[in-house]
Design a protein around this nucleic acid. Sequence first.
DNA 1: GTGAAAGCGCTAACAT
DNA 2: ATGTTAGCGCTTTCAC
Lengths: 344, 344
Amino acid sequence: MTITLEEIAQRAGVSRATASRALHGTYPVKAETKQRIAKLAKELDYQPNLAARSLRTERTCTIGIVVDDISSPFSPLIVHGIHDALRQNGYVSLIINTERQVETEIDAMHDLLGRSIDGIILVESFLQRDRVMPDLAGKPFVFVHRLFNSGVGNCVMVDEQYGTRLAVEHLIHLGHRKIAHITGPKGWDATNDRLTYFRETMTRAGLPLDEALIREGDWEIEGGYAAAQALLTVPERPTAIFAANDSIAVGTMYAIQEAGLRVPDDISVIGYDNLPSATIIRPKLSTVTMPCYDMGQTGAKLLIRQLANHALPDEQIKVRGELIIRDTTGIPVLSTLKAKSTHS
Amino acid sequence: MTITLEEIAQRAGVSRATASRALHGTYPVKAETKQRIAKLAKELDYQPNLAARSLRTERTCTIGIVVDDISSPFSPLIVHGIHDALRQNGYVSLIINTERQVETEIDAMHDLLGRSIDGIILVESFLQRDRVMPDLAGKPFVFVHRLFNSGVGNCVMVDEQYGTRLAVEHLIHLGHRKIAHITGPKGWDATNDRLTYFRETMTRAGLPLDEALIREGDWEIEGGYAAAQALLTVPERPTAIFAANDSIAVGTMYAIQEAGLRVPDDISVIGYDNLPSATIIRPKLSTVTMPCYDMGQTGAKLLIRQLANHALPDEQIKVRGELIIRDTTGIPVLSTLKAKSTHS
DNA sequence: GTGAAAGCGCTAACAT
DNA sequence: ATGTTAGCGCTTTCAC
């Protein structure tokens, strides 16, 4: 029923070996024979049996993807990037979803090893968070993550310094001086990074750092809302708020609007991630992209390099997002006037 | 280096065949031997080589998933459901992303066949849209889709009649009589279905059908916004609007709020899909869920049944969503009063 | 430049 | 209840 190499070889009047060589193009085969075999293969729609091939070669052209949550807002984009890069190089992937369970992640690794895959990409791995290096029987692996910055082994991370600067400098260039920051929850590398680089950027620009303008959020709308309400009561109200992610930014906008103020006329808001919420809310949210697709591609390419040459040293790569200016950031005209009149 | 069955057999002092049988549990093996082998396998962390196994059995316990867009709002949820059901049955999956290109979809099928997978699930397939049955060399396949209702072959669809009734009857039970509908764009089965069942539900409830209260949207916020603006100008303004999806509902809310009216006090709004936007917007959107996860699970289970018995007849299964009541639907008190005062 | 032959690790039919 | 044997389809030495 199915076409085997044997079938092709017989019809072409050659041995299986020759047919195999002809189709691979790596060994010398007479040009004429080669063409005849190629034609035959095409006509018969020959599909090499990959199980047989990998039994022989110990390569499967399949890589495993271990992902924290395949239906989160970020992971599908990362997986998309991985897929595209793999496909261009003739690889496919098996995906295992860990539901953010460390045990599932470890089980998944086992499973994948049994399937004799060539390598593994771990997306938002909990092993990596805990700085644990998985044991993969010598198979190459790459970490891709947004929220941890361990920088151990082969990994692709976000350039948080670059992204934070894009956001904060955008506000500074618009003329803002009193800029508040609503952070993510404690204990996340991303929270620390964005806060650190917020401070750094302010200082670099020679602006004062008012600790009263730094509040903690929870990555969600609710936390952003509460933190922003608090910010609106400080004596020297900020003219702009840098939210550590888009959900916080949305909550911030609700708090501002509910207080009877306008975005961006009274207070500018900028987010981080560029999730769909940024274009659902009105006015549309200015933000910095989380370069998920790019990270996925970069990770897959890194793995492919490692696959080609196992001796390569580990690489840590940072990927940069970009600034998306929409309608929530503007010149601090009105606020400044108001502030002046209050003081006069 | 890697542990083979041979290794286990030798250490246990039995033949490969016995070891194989012991580990499978289907053939009779002396209990004591069986235990010894199982223990050995565990100790040595034996991973059967699946390439070798499938070369022999012509089964891979791998199924292919062909998906329109792996980073769309819906497909990851469907894939998640598929994954969970597969995993429970010892299957894993290869995913191919078609980027909504028919040629890519056809290529993908070829690719997958070469990988000797056991079956295929096509998510939101363009072949199915065009009522084309793929040729899979006799391998079972299942369609899962939200937007077409072809009902050909093995397929899992949405029960649009049920979902639409949930939404519209919710409004009717609240006391609304003048209910508008903003449809999806022309040419989609989902658009037609929701419109048809909207009419049906209104009629069943003995309510008048005002064609002026039916407007076409485009699945997006902008289209919903424009359609809703038009609806606000009709003489007998509706007290409730059923939007064919959540994006349209969001646009509708913006139009209502911009006109100085309140949701739900002046006009109730209900969406369809239960996307993240439903909980981003304020007030939070009442809606009907698109049962993606459930559809994925159902599709995978259907495929597994077909895998177990190829002779099974095709099945068409409809999956039901559920009503999510949030804050955009209420009793038409104020509107009714206003309407009365206008008439007096 | 090509063929013969071995063998990857496993399972299943056939013996015993 | 267990061992023997063949073979799945392919690649890759080793000959010629």
